Simulated scan of single mutants.
Amino acid sequence: MFTYVNGQVIPNSEVRISPFDHGFLYGVGVFETFRTYDGRPFLLGEHLNRLNQSLQELHIDLQVAREEMLDILAQLEEANGWRDAYIRFNVSAGEGDIGLQTAPYQKPNVIVFQKKLAPAGPMTEKRGVWLETRRNRPEGESRLKSHHYLNNIFGKREAGSDPSIEGIFLTEDEFVAEGVVSNMFWIEKGTLYTPALQTGILGGVTRRFVMDIARDTGLRVEEGLYTPAEAEAADEVFVTNSIQEIVPLRALGEKTFPGAAGEAVQLLFKQYRSAVRQ
């Protein structure tokens, strides 16, 4: 298997970074995860915009052009032979002296990982569990998709290794936040609800896209501060991320839901897959 590192596609066994990289030492780095469908990256422009905005906020002196990203993906596809794949586009600050740095990082490390995925199949289900681990507050004004992932790791440890279970964080004030690796949604009486960004959640690319297609299908969309009881009172519940797409929950806490049989989630999933094909 091959990975892209600073202009070269090399075997995974040869990938190296300096221990003085501030992405390693201090967590100064960001990444985007998305998938390719038959060689086509989905929502690439949205992921690219978020990546470049995050790089600017971290004072990492790099802006990635769409053409550059497409060229990197083409190189990886040629090397690995995978047209359906998970992509992690990672940028770390690069090498620096020991100690916190205020000057911009001018020589970042760009590492793009690819992992083979099966062609997109039918919608899957999960069971949601409320976590005792609370969602931490963002390090800055808003949450970045950064190297600082300890809160997610602690949440995943609590939820366990079963891939059919998604742990759901609450905020310190006990409002619904997001999943360990997902954004959270539920539907009740024709309205799609999702926690607001002010809860400290990641502004997911797939989250925004699902809100858009929900409006197109006639659903009202509302963001806000919600309690677990409000989520459990819903008709349907689901989570989203760029790799797993739309994943309905068959249960949340002690409450059961229609899961993949839900009418609204089926409609949204159909619209999502239609966009992928286009």
Rank of each mutant, 00 (worst) to 15 (best):
T124I: 10
T124N: 00
E125H: 00
E125P: 00
R127S: 11
R127Q: 05
L131A: 03
T133R: 04
N136E: 10
N136I: 01
N136W: 03
P138R: 10
G140M: 04
E141Q: 14
S142D: 05
Y149Q: 14
N152P: 02
F154S: 11
E158W: 06
A159M: 08
G160T: 09
D162K: 13
I165Y: 03
F169P: 03
L170A: 06
T171V: 14
E172G: 14
V176F: 09
E178W: 11
G179R: 07
S182C: 07
M184R: 03
M184K: 01
F185Q: 10
K189P: 07
K189L: 02
G190V: 03
G190A: 08
Y193R: 03
T194E: 11
A196M: 09
L197R: 08
G200P: 06
G203A: 13
G203V: 01
G203I: 00
V205I: 15
T206F: 11
R207A: 03
R207Q: 06
R208D: 14
M211C: 09
D212E: 12
I213S: 06
R215L: 11
R215H: 08
R215C: 07
G218D: 05
G224D: 07
G224A: 10
L225R: 12
A229D: 08
A229W: 07
A229C: 02
E230K: 15
A233D: 13
A234I: 05
V239E: 06
S242H: 12
S242T: 14
S242V: 08
E245I: 12
L249D: 03
R250W: 02
A251C: 04
A251Y: 01
P258E: 03
V265I: 15
L268S: 08
K270G: 10
Y272A: 05
